[in-house]
Structure formats: C-alpha cells, structure tokens
Design a protein around this nucleic acid. Structure first.
Length: 1025
RNA sequence: GCGGGAGUGGCGGAAUGGCAGACGCAGCAGACUUAGGAUCUGCCGCCUUCGGGCGUGGGGGUUCAAGUCCCCCCUCCCGCACCA
C-alpha cells in the first residue's frame, strides 16, 4: 500500500532530476527548481508507474469467482451484482500499437472503473488472439518461429497497454496459442464434431443419440448424407459411418472452396473480398473443389437471425448479420427428368412465373450432371448450345453480337461427331472452374452456357425443357439448380438471348415499365430490351395449374405453392445466402485438429484424455510454395512431419496405426469462445465451471437463456466474421447444455476508428506525417516541397501513425486517456490531432494545482462546508457525469468535469479554501477517466486505500436545484429577453412576473398578444400578431 | 442497384421538440513576466444603419416553438451485390 508520505520522498527525488532532463519535451513545465510538484509529463509518468505497480501488487482488479481457484475474497463482493465488461482481444502484430488501437480498451476501462465505484462486481479481462495468418505471415517475414515472434509481440503489446493503466484482472490473461487454452478449443471442436442438428427439435444433439435413432429405425438418414437412399439396415459398417459423418456439425466435404495459392491455403467466404482476393495479403483466390473440414453453421441460420432480437447490438451490425445470412422465401420445385427417374429440385422466389420456365440451368458442379448427361446429342441440337471451341467463342465474342448471330440456333449444321455432350459438359466445367467467383458474378462478361443433352418436364406446362449448365448458377446457393424464366429474370433473359431460347411472358409489364423502356404495349418479350422483373397483370396460360389472372404477386405465389404441394411437385421453402463455414487451413500456426484417420480414411475423434494435440516442432513451417495457376493439391506443413502424422493408438479395439489430420483450424476458432475461458482460465478439469459461467453470464432476472457478456466493445470489421462464428459455437454449446445463455454477447458496442491526416508528395507517395510542417498560408510542406493532405485510418501504410509511447513521454497516460475519451462519442470515427491533446493535459494540470501545492506537493484543502452555489454546481455535475458514464458518453463526462474544475479554479484558485468535500468528489469523478492522478490526489488528501472500489459521490437532487431559474422568453419563437422566477414556479406566477416585466411591454406594444405558452421551468413563448 | 449511417463555427464536437454552438483546439486582446509554446482574465457563427436581420446540406410541411418529427431532393461514408 502506498501512503502519501512515501510518495513525497519518491516524487521529490524524481522531481529534482527534471532540472537536468533537458532532452525530453516538457510541455507545460516551468523550471522545476521552483515547482517540483507541477503536473507535467515527468511527474505524470512517475505517478503512473507507481500506481500501476501498486494495483498489480495489491491485486486491485482481481475479480473473485464464486468458487474455484480464483475465489479468494469472493465474500467481500458477493452482494454486488456481477458485470462482465470486455474488449475484442487483439492479435499481437509485430509493428506495435498506434494511438488508435487503445480507444476501445480505454472506453471499457473507464466504464469498468465506473461500475466498480457504483457497487458492481466487475470482470474485466484481456487476452491475445495469437494464432492465425497474420501472426504466421509475420513470423515468416522475419524468419523466426511463430511462437517466438508471437510471444515477443505479446510482451511488447502488454508493455504498451500496461502503461495505460487498464484495470484488467491479469490472472485471467489468455492467449489462444497457449497449449492449455487450445486444448479446450480442441475439446469444443470434438463436442461439435460429435453433434448433429435435429431439425424437428431445432437444436444440436449428441451424435450417439442419432446413431441410436437410426438403429432403432425411429429416424431415417437425411437424404444428402445417404446418397443412394438405402435403408440403414442394408448399409455396411463403413457406409453407416459415412452416413453418420454426413450428419455431424463438423464434417469433411468435397466443396468448391476459395483456394489462395499466394497464401498456400483455403479461405472462408468471409475472408475473401468482393474483388475475389484474400482479405489478408490481397492475393488472388480461385474456386477449386477440395476435401475440407466444414462447420454446419447453416443449420443455425434461422436462429442466428431470430436471436438477434435478444441482444442489445447496434442496428447496423444486426442488419449486416441478417444480410449475410440472407434469408429468402420462395418455393422448392421438383422437375422430373425425361427418360430417367431423376428428379431435379430447384429453389425459386418466383413460383408464380413457373409457366414461363422454358429451360433449366444447373451449376456446372451440380452432382446430377453426370447422371443426366447422355452419350449423344438429341436430334436437332443447335450448335450454339454445344459450347464448341471450349469456351473460346464466349471469350472472344463481343456481348450481344454473339447472341444475335446465334439466335434461333437452327441455322447451323449441328456439332462435330466427336463433340459429345460429355465432352462439351466437361469443357464447360473446366471453363467455369477457371473463373473466379468475381468473374462469375459480373454482368460484364457475356453469358455462357452449355446444353447437357437432357430434358426435364415443367410441372405446370407439362412440356419438356432443356437442361443447361451456366456459370451464373452457383452450387452453394439454394439447390444449385434453377428454373429459368427468361421473360422475368435478367440473367435468364441474357442467356436465352445468347442461346436463342424462347422467351414467353407470364406477366404483362406495367405501364411505367413500358414507358421507361419505350416499349409499346403488347410487344413480344423477344423484343424487350431486358427482362421484366416487376409486378404486373398475369396473362392467361395454358398450363395445368390454376390461372393466376387477376391475382397480386403474393397471392399468385401462394396459389402456385398450394398447387405444387397438392400435386407433390414442390413446397414452400426458405433459402439462405449463408454457406457452411470452411474450417480447415493448410497452415502451421493454428490449432491442430483432434482427429485421426483410420485405414478406411474416415475421421476418428480422439478421446478427451488424449488432448491436447500439440503442434509438433518444425524448423520449416512455411506453406508449400505454389504458383497462382498451380493445380496440385495443397500440402499442409504438418504433413511433412511424418513421425507426428503417423501414430499408433488404442482407441478401444487394440493398438492400430492412424494418420493425423494435418490441416489446422482457422484463426477464428480461438476467438469463438475466449470470453468463456476468461471466466475460469485456470480450470484443468473443464473448459469452464458451470457455476462460474452462470454467475458471470446468466441474467437471473431474465427468461431462461437470457444473458451474455454485459458489454463487448470492438470494431465493426468483425460484424460478420467473428461475431457470427462465435454466436454459432455458443449456440451449439447452449444446445448441449454446456453454457447457460442463448447468446454470447448481450450488449455490443462498436468503437470508432481514429483517423489521421496523411500527406502525399508530387509523385503521390505518402510521406511521414510527423515531418510535415504547416505553412503560413495554410498549406503543408515536407522537406520544403508542397504536399497534399488526405485523411485515412491511422497506420503504417499511410505513414501517419502516432505511437502511444510518444504520448506517454510528452503528456503521460492519463492525458492520453482523457484526450481519447474527450475527442468525440466512442462510436464515432474521429481525426487525431496531436496539437489538441494539450487541452486534456491542461485540464489535469488545473485539477492537480487546485488541490496540490506545486512547490511542496502538499494537498491544501479546507474543512469548511459548501455554500449553496458550490453545492449546486457539484451536485449538478455529479448527476450529469453519472448519466454520461452510464451511457458511455465519456466525451460529455469530460466536458462536465472540465467545467467543474474551471469552477473550482475560478472560485478557490490556489487559496487553500477549496472544501475537502468538493475536492474529493471531483477526484472520485475523474478517477475512471484518469485513474493514476486521481489515486495520487486521493492519497495526498490523506486516504490510505485505493479509490478503485470507493463509492461514486452520491448526487443530491435537492442540492442541485436552483432557488431561482432564468426563463428565456420568446416572441414568435425568437428569444428576446429573460425573466427570473422562483424554482418550481407555476404558470400563474410566471405569467405574473412576465407581464410585470418592462421588456414584455416593449415587445407587445401596438401588437395583439394572441397566445402565451408557458412551459414551467423551461421557456415562455409569446405569439403576437 | 439494394440495405444502413451521417451532413451543425476555422477544426473536433454539445444540445429529453424549449436560449443552437456546452467542452476542447486554433485565433484575437489584455494581465503577470528578462522571456513565453507557462499561467490568469476577456472576446471569439455571419451580416448590421446597433433597432435588429440571417444561420444546423437544399426545398416543402407539422408545431406556440424544429438541428431534433414528417415528405421530397443533394452530397459523403459503410455493408451487400449473377443468391435464383
């Protein structure tokens, strides 16, 4: 414990040293020989280091658990309501922090400190997301082992953040790379692997229960997990295992994945930019079918949308998650193949246009392609349908011209004899695979497609329609097959034009559309400039389905769906944009899978006792080098450690050899559950003690499953990646009864970004912003040359980083904390201006000088009570600051505290007459924002214990009230004068004072007073004519 | 194109429908100083004939009263974008 007398000695010694410290910038200092206790960068640094050490030694921010190894001292806080406040943990990069990084960390710390002072038991932990591509890329670039660089980076970040005085419970610090942490990441993976989604119960269940149901026959295997639809009893042991594996929430599947040769790994959809490049490194990404681990997040699509209603998150983030999941309502319709027993299922949002479906399009990767494609072209197949020249025609042709020259398709002599449907389909599949998703996703390249040679029957018209493959149909969405309605869908329209397919209308375009496109009424769809996708009048059709004439679009859809259900050709369906989560990476620096493969090549879960599966040591952990066009399979680095890959285990049926999974988990795995490990970080028996989990996470007053982290602060960039994955894992854990809440994060807050001016020279290159000087005319120069000012996110690439270390050296950490909180609302982006920070520094200087004699370091306060004016000012401030802290409005809290400090300066300025009551309340209120100076002042005011748990000053409304109030008086809405009335004066009193005022006479003379509005305590408005 | 957010002094920003510009930076004037990049005091939206007039991206509306609520438009930022 630090007493004020002990400080005096330390501070005096250090203070003397200031006279020789001429090299340091000494903003706000005067010759220290005169004022050794002037609050400047040096004294601040001294105070901050001492208090950081004191907090650490005393365990000031340790939050005891209700039971278990961290429960010491729980009795003292048992009565306090628990609150869990945390940040999105960072990944420790090698370049260190800039002042933009800690914005959110300061915000949560201020809030956590405020909550401690208002009677809460606060859990405020911190950790590091240290696995993953960025850490590994950095390690590769610097030629060192990732663990070495990662640990060095964590040390540096811990040092930089430590100087901010963040009140974290250091005992709970975790890094996702800790073996004792990723052991439990693997354990959770096994829970997911050993679960399946029961659609009827709408929750995950242990896989053993599925096996039981399959064996007893109470449940049939899901179709897509059992391709040949044979009964369970007829399946071999291996076939049964495949069926079961096909139900798991973590499963291996051959999928079209995002293959990034530049990174030597596959990536999740969420990690690929709209330009078809990797989020990290900006390398090109290609679509390739590979066998990879997937997580069945799509099973949770509906709950991930619905449960957004349970959380207090920014609407924008909720909306982004909804958009990402992308639900869309429509129908699934089955088309019977002509001449075989295959039924092709399509998803459509427009079943009302089924009568206009004149062809079908499958994704090139659709599993039925092989089955459907015949050996020979049907008679009369137009050459344009057969993708001759293996796509050359598509690549060379110039858009609509090619469509025109091929239209009709009947003028050609048919394909060459060796050009079979199978050859054409294979060529097209090859062509489509070479296109990135981005190219497949643009209107800029001409539509291409190939006829499979197969026909299916349109259930409404009963006619046979040709089946094509086209790159614009994606295997990952819906069923990977569509019914093409060229008249009413632009993509289908374009392809129909290219291939010369009929375009019958189902709907008559409305007048606005015809007008806008200058199309005469009654024009045949073939002559339309584009498809008509709007709402219009249904035309009479000759199909077997009921007529839609006269119906609205929703009614027409309903009517069609009902008919489809009646005839067994379809049903209402919902589809999602969300894809299953690609979960494996061909990298070294990640969690190994707790999975081995047996002789059948099927995955086997390791038993919990064999966890953790640790990363083997390697000297060369780089991914196998790959050219962009390399088509070979990726080789994970771990596959090269042959004595690790091969392993002999006894998994219950005697020792056998197995082959380990050599992929590793993606970076997101570790961040999916770290908030749970904070709760019980030292538990070696469980991933978290259920009682501890319930204590911190569950809201006892709410409905079952209510709760989650009380406040979670981080950047918007995690809106869909981390937050969606973590919610998914959490829901699985909830379904399995392992956590008590439905959602992981009850309240989410996105802090803004700190922007900074950046400067470019004549060549457009960024120059170091620190070296740019402002010229007299308001321009900017760098080394004498004029430069242009731009603004952008602070960072290395724009050469505009400002390091927190510089700010500690120039002003101290408290000043940096106050400035970052004062510069604007926490959720707003704001520009950094180092020049502005002196305002926050001056505030703390005035605060200090109001209480401490700068020559002696002794606190000088009076024991006199407060007069009404001081009491009113104080209590008004308490009320306002309290509300601001509680509402995370730290910028206005700072403003209020500056006002109170300025009031104190003006009123008592150095006289020693400052009442202790006022001084202490001010110090306590400043404490969450600037905890070091507050602790120091608190100690110098004679207190022997930290103020961290001291009650926040109580506000007294009656003391805050004015005895008289000044009411503005408006005349026709413009303020003209003011009147003084007693506080709480009723309307009659106000009117009496008003009409007695000479200004009232002046403003109403020669005019008619039509009305006088009195809002007691607020305002008066006189309406005159 | 679809969805979301934001436009207020020279700058960052304040304002439960009730005195627009709190607080801070920059700027101006003064005091104290050998000195000021310290401190303290005052001024600080625009125009003005000193009565006042005009002001929260633009235009309408509701209201005694609109930065705030409603409608239309403009600009900027973010997310999604062959998703059938």
């Amino acid at each position: 414990m630090i007493s004020s007398s002990e400080h005096t000695g330390t501070a005096t010694g250090a203070g003397t040293a200031t006279t020789t410290a001429t090299g340091a910038r000494q903003t706000g200092t005067v010759p220290a020989v005169d004022l050794p206790f002037r609050y400047g960068a040096r004294l601040a640094g001294d105070i901050e280091r001492r208090w950081q050490q004191a907090w650490s030694e005393r365990g000031t921010f340790h939050s005891p658990n209700p039971r278990g190894p961290l429960s010491d001292g729980f009795d003292r806080v048992a009565e306090r309501p628990p609150v869990f406040v945390m940040d999105m943990f960072p990944y420790p990069s090698g370049v260190g922090l800039h002042v933009g990084h800690p914005l959110g960390y300061i915000g949560t710390d201020v809030f956590a400190r405020y909550l401690r002072m208002t009677g809460h038991h606060v859990l405020h932990p911190f950790g590091y997301d240290a696995f993953g591509l960025p850490a590994e890329q950095y390690a590769i670039n610097t030629g060192q082992h990732p663990r070495v660089t990662t640990e060095a980076n964590i040390d540096n970040m811990r040092r930089q953040l430590g100087r901010l005085g963040l009140g974290h419970d250091a005992r709970r610090e975790i890094a996702t790379t800790d073996v004792e942490y990723y052991r439990w990441t693997q354990w959770i993976f096994l829970r997911i692997f050993n679960s399946w989604y029961d659609d009827q119960a709408d929750r995950a269940r242990p896989i053993d229960e599925l096996v039981t149901e399959l064996e007893t026959g109470t449940r049939q295997p899901r179709g897509d997990a059992n391709p040949h639809n044979r009964p369970w009893s007829a399946l071999s042991t291996t076939e049964r295992r495949r069926v079961v594996d096909g139900h798991r929430l973590a499963f291996i599947s051959e999928q079209l994945v995002n293959w990034c040769p530049g990174l030597g790994t596959v990536l999740a959809n969420e990690e690929v930019t709209a330009e078809g490049r990797s989020d990290i490194g900006n390398y090109p990404v290609f679509r390739r079918p590979l066998r990879q681990w997937m997580m069945r997040i799509t099973a949770y699509a509906e709950r991930l949308i619905a449960d957004l209603d349970l959380v207090d998150w920014p609407d924008s983030i909720k909306q982004m998650q909804r958009n990402w999941i992308g639900p869309s309502d429509g129908a699934s319709v089955e088309f019977d193949a002509v001449g075989s027993d295959v039924r092709v299922e399509v998803f459509t949002t427009r079943p009302d246009t089924l009568a206009g479906a004149t062809f079908m399009v499958l994704a090139p990767e659709h599993p039925f392609v092989d089955t459907l494609t015949p050996d020979a072209w049907p008679p009369g197949t137009p050459a344009a349908w057969t993708f001759t020249d293996a796509g050359q025609n598509a690549a060379d042709s110039g858009g609509s011209n090619s469509g025109g020259s091929n239209s009709g398709g009947s003028n050609s002599g048919g394909p060459a004899p060796d050009w079979t449907p199978r050859a054409a389909v294979a060529a097209y599949q090859d062509y489509a695979a070479r296109l990135g998703d981005r190219q497949r996703g643009t209107d800029e390249i001409p539509r291409t497609g190939v006829f499979t040679g197969a026909y299916v029957t349109n259930p409404v018209t009963g006619t046979a329609i040709p089946v094509f493959l086209a790159d614009y149909v994606l295997m990952g969405y819906g069923t990977g097959a569509i019914m093409a309605v060229p008249a009413h869908d632009q993509r289908d329209f374009s392809l129909a034009r290219t291939l010369g397919l009929p375009i019958p209308a189902v709907l008559a375009p409305n007048a606005e559309w015809l007008d806008e496109h200058t199309v005469p009424t009654g024009t045949a769809p073939d002559a339309w400039p584009e498809a008509f996708a709007g709402e219009g009048e249904y035309l009479a059709s000759s199909g077997v389905a009921p007529s839609l004439v006269g119906l609205s679009k929703p009614d027409a859809i309903k009517s069609t769906v009902r008919w489809l259900e009646d005839v067994g050709a379809g049903r209402a369906a919902r589809s999602y944009r969300l894809r299953d989560w690609l979960f494996s990476r061909q990298r070294y620096w990640g969690e190994p899978f707790p999975i081995v493969f047996d002789d059948d090549g099927l995955p086997v879960a390791l038993p919990d006792e064999l966890l953790p599966v640790t990363l083997p040591e390697m000297t060369d952990f780089r991914p196998a080098a790959m050219a962009d066009d390399d088509v070979s399979d990726p080789v994970p680095p771990l596959a090269r450690v042959s004595d690790w890959v091969g392993v002999t285990l006894d998994l219950g049926d005697g020792p056998k050899t197995y082959r380990r999974e050599t992929n590793t988990m993606p970076q997101w795995a570790g961040s999916c559950w770290y908030y749970l490990r904070y709760l019980d970080p030292t538990n070696s028996e469980r991933f978290v003690d259920p009682e501890v989990e319930r204590y911190w996470m569950h809201t006892p007053s709410g409905p079952p499953g209510d709760g989650g982290v009380g406040l979670y602060v981080g950047g918007v960039e995690h809106a869909v990646l981390h937050l969606l994955y973590a919610r998914f894992w959490h829901k699985v854990l909830y379904d399995l009864g392992l956590v008590s809440t439905k959602e992981p994060f009850k309240r989410l807050f996105n802090q803004g970004y700190i922007q900074a001016d950046a400067f470019t020279d004549a060549r457009g290159m960024y120059v170091p912003a620190a070296d740019v000087v402002r010229t007299a005319d308001g321009g900017f120069t760098h080394e004498g040359e004029p430069v242009n000012r731009r603004s952008g996110k602070m960072g290395k690439s724009l050469k505009n980083s400002v390091s927190p270390d510089e700010m500690y050296d120039s002003f101290g950490a408290d000043t940096l904390r106050v400035y970052e909180m004062a510069m604007g609302p926490l959720d707003a982006d704001r520009p950094w201006h180092t020049d502005d920070i002196v305002g926050s520094h001056r505030f703390l200087q005035r605060l200090w000088r109001n209480i401490v004699d700068e020559a002696t370091g002794v606190a000088a306060v009076s024991d006199a009570g407060l007069d009404t004016d001081a009491a009113r000012t104080l209590h008004r401030t308490i009320l306002a600051v309290q509300a601001d802290y509680a509402g995370l409005r730290f910028n206005t809290a700072v403003a209020r505290l500056i006002e109170l400090t300025n009031f104190v300066s003006k009123r008592y300025g150095g006289s020693g007459e400052l009442p202790r009551e006022l001084a202490e309340a001010l110090v306590l209120m400043v404490a969450p924002l600037a905890p070091h100076i507050a602790e120091e002042l608190w100690a110098r005011l004679g207190h022997e214990t930290s103020l961290a748990l001291h009650p926040f000053p109580p506000a007294d409304e009656s003391l805050a009230a004015e005895s008289t109030v000044t009411l503005p008086v408006q005349v026709n809405g413009k303020v003209r004068f003011t009147i003084e009335v007693p506080a709480g004066a009723d309307e009659q009193t106000v009117r009496a004072v008003l009409t007695g005022n000479e200004e009232y006479a002046r403003h109403t003379v020669d005019r008619t007073v039509k009305r006088v509005i009195v809002v007691p305590g607020r305002i008066v408005n006189i309406a005159v004519g």
